[in-house]
Design a protein around this nucleic acid. Structure first.
Lengths: 332, 332
DNA sequence: CTGAAAGCGCTAACAA
DNA sequence: TTGTTAGCGCTTTCAG
């Protein structure tokens, strides 16, 4: 008994057709006569035949597999963002029956692009060179969550500036004058944009930007906590804080609870992300919702298009986030 | 100008050697004369040549890529365990210069095993069929964190029973009689084993197992919280609680802090995992350490062996967890 | 609608 | 140490 792998030839023989027909069955079944199609289907099932993907690809076929490259910064997996990104992509791809290979970029560019049809970057952090390499090698790419203006590449991002501006403006409209900001890691574009949006909103409302009230907490709970400690040892306490992520906002909530600072009575809080966990915590957090599912779904469509239509061209899309008003902001 | 892909033939021509020599250069450089080796190296660099992996694999080569299949249960990415697993594998593989493709099993078996040399399963939850399929197709596999006794497959696991037994016994030796247990999702083998270890320790010390003190909290913070609420509305309060994960233990800590229950004075706590976050929280958690890095490193070695040595056989390894004594257990 | 045949880019005998 | 050559399993013209 020969335990060789079942190949297309085995199927062809058993079904009494040529390997070309079996190949057609695999890729374009409707081009076969019903009779043959059914016969082949039956044999494929009987023999439990699965085409070898690398053989298909070598012969010019597709792998139906996208790669997702995630920058492997510390705590990435604790971030709501990364999880949602993966889930969003997962469901967008499921519809098209495309598989996803996740690769985490821990400072080493070992991504095998020849094993995928195209690549999605979840942001670019310290891996511009990798992006350039893939592009140069002719890989189709789309970047999510970062607007890459100096490289010819498709992206779908979010207007973080606008989201932050609106959040801050919302606080100002509620009478707040001393508004602190817990910023994310400024290496990350969205964190920088949110900081800018925050500043701009203050300026537009004639409130001075005071760096004492800006704490760069790198999206980390611990640093957010430290930032709050510092903020609450200042002469004039902030009456509101805008956080660059819901997780940091959650930490602010914990801080407030421990210190018996009433929310939103004495401290108003706005987050960023719309992490569902924060909607059902003790407090229901006012926040800025990022349309992650939409971003991923669009990214998948663009990439699919880029791969399958020779004349598809680069597309760049910026979505608008939405302020979700819940319970953590009060009038002063 | 022809933008065809650079192939092995281009390199061969340019270097004035045969494609076989280039192939040797790629796979076994020392078999070449120094002169040629250097010449080829130079051309490879100049032409920026990268062999096509699927072509290599089709021709019988290796991809130097392992797959990691993670069961995609809710909240997986919030679990310390999953992150450590990925990190551990990442560094173990980096040493061998093997790439990792992560695949999350959301109830759909679409993993492309022909794109990897071997596969590591991070536990088996609802995906036994997938494991069987890969095995049947001749893929080399090793399972981490689950002792699969009824399938002929390698695994490396942890003696959860023993860890839980020791943790519980440690509490008993400190005089505790009413010891609650927050169990994990009992679909997960380790959760079940920990529950059993807990029960056995009680029995061996002539303490009755009382189901009222066992709350199945599925590794979830919310359910852990609910469990604690229930436990603390009982007639006789527990004086200690053994948690099936550090995350749940952390929630217990929060619960205690809010309710002004002194730890460890009025409530002793033991976790499971040794999540560093819980060592530097307000309390330094007594816990059971899982040697995840070791597990992953062994798993990689086994898989590598299975792939490269024809006569390598299935190996099954069970590691022993270690009780880490810190500050959350007191004598009664 | 179907089959024959020419590769896809690479590895690994086999010879030299 | 090197080159020649026969595939690996599949897709895709091109005829029929």
């Amino acid at each position: 008994m020969d335990s060789r792998r079942i190949t297309i030839l085995d199927v062809a023989k058993e079904a009494g057709v040529s390997i070309a027909s079996v190949s057609r069955f695999l890729n374009n079944p409707t081009s076969l006569r019903k009779e043959n199609r059914e016969k082949i289907a039956q044999v494929v099932k009987k023999l439990d035949y699965h085409p070898l993907l690398h053989a298909q690809k070598l012969a010019g076929g597709k792998l139906n597999t996208f790669g997702l490259i995630i920058p492997g910064y510390e705590g990435i997996f604790y971030s709501f963002y990364a999880l949602e990104m993966i889930r969003g992509l997962g469901s967008a791809l499921e519809r098209k029956d495309i598989d996803l290979h996740i690769n985490i970029f821990w400072n080493k560019d070992n991504f095998k692009n020849s094993l995928v049809d195209g690549v999605i970057f979840a942001d670019i952090i310290n891996n511009r060179a990798q992006l350039l390499r893939l592009l140069k090698q002719g890989t189709q790419v789309v970047v999510i969550n970062r607007k890459v203006s100096d490289i010819e590449v498709s992206f779908v991002g979010v207007d973080n500036f606008k989201g932050a501006y609106e959040a801050t403006d919302f606080l100002i409209k509620h009478g707040h004058k001393i508004i602190a900001h817990l910023a994310g890691d400024l290496k990350v574009q969205c964190a920088q944009e949110r900081l800018n949006g925050y500043k701009e909103a203050l300026k537009d409302n004639n409130i001075d930007v005071n760096n004492k009230y800006i704490k760069v907490a790198n999206f980390s709970r611990v640093l957010a906590r430290n930032g709050m400690e510092e903020l609450f040892s200042l002469q004039k306490l902030p009456t509101a804080v805008f956080c660059s992520s819901d997780e940091m906002a959650e930490e602010v909530l914990h801080f407030a609870r421990e210190k018996d600072i009433e929310v939103p009575g004495r401290l108003s809080i706005v987050g960023f992300d719309d992490n569902p966990r924060c909607a059902y915590d003790n407090f229901s957090l006012t926040t800025v919702r990022q349309p992650i599912a939409k971003m991923t779904s669009i990214a998948v469509d663009i990439l699919d298009d880029l791969i399958n239509n020779k004349d598809a061209s680069i597309r760049r899309i910026v979505l608008t986030p939405e302020l979700i008003i819940r319970d953590t902001v009060a009038f002063l």
